[in-house]
Design a protein around this nucleic acid. Structure first.
Lengths: 118, 118
DNA sequence: CGGCATCCTTGGAGATACTG
DNA sequence: CAGTATCTCCAAGGATGCCG
């Protein structure tokens, strides 16, 4: 999408528009999941379904934070929730397809981390 | 709270250590570069050397923010800075090897974004 | 041009306590 | 067990101004 000066407008599209046209996907992705906790939780769910307190323990997030992060991830379609209303309620979280498709990102991060973090 | 009556040695490593041992690389990577601006700036530098105000325009960060982000990235070894002390000072930023090795991450993000963000 | 210093607002996130 | 409700604290980050 070249920003062709199509109409007589003659107006350079300016920063914002250029940015949007320019770098949408990565920046979009970063803004969608570019928060520490979201990434950590998503990565943690690659192992498969987990329940709330499991996630809490393995990620180290507080109930409060975890709850909100999961909430966000769910409404954004990254994870889905399955509840078992048995005796003591049990709710399980897992990646949706959209969330699972982030795996390559985590693989890349993992590989990078292996090279540079130890 | 759980100062476990440890038998012998404090072998229970406590949450923090468990976490570190568990998920080091990805979480480490996320904690190293897992901030919105760092990711955006790094991604922006994939195109090659850029100067301060260029980055400012293309990323949309304020001088203040950009300055601090670049500062961090530089001391952490992700980018390097080259200054030309000519007339009006010009300083160029580019990825180091460490930073460049993050490209696969951005490629993955880009691909993901292409699939899910449009 | 590059980039600190300063002020100020916001929200991210921990600790704690409470409910279904 | 799985959350929600507060309260609080601090860092992130925008706006603005100044200066080499």
């Amino acid at each position: 999408m070249a920003t062709q000066p199509s109409e007589g407008d003659g107006e350079e599209p300016t920063d914002v528009e250029r940015r949007n046209a320019d770098v949408c996907t990565v920046v979009g992705a970063v803004e969608a999941v570019g928060s520490k906790w979201k990434l950590i939780v998503l990565n943690d769910l690659r192992g498969g379904e987990k329940r709330f307190n499991e996630l809490k323990r393995s990620t180290g997030a507080s109930s409060y934070t975890l709850s909100r992060v999961l909430d966000g991830l769910e409404t954004e379609g990254f994870v889905e929730n399955r509840k078992e209303l048995a005796s003591p309620v049990a709710s399980y979280y897992s990646l949706t397809e959209k969330g699972g498709d982030l795996c390559p990102v985590f693989d890349a991060l993992d590989e990078w981390g292996t090279d540079w973090l130890e």
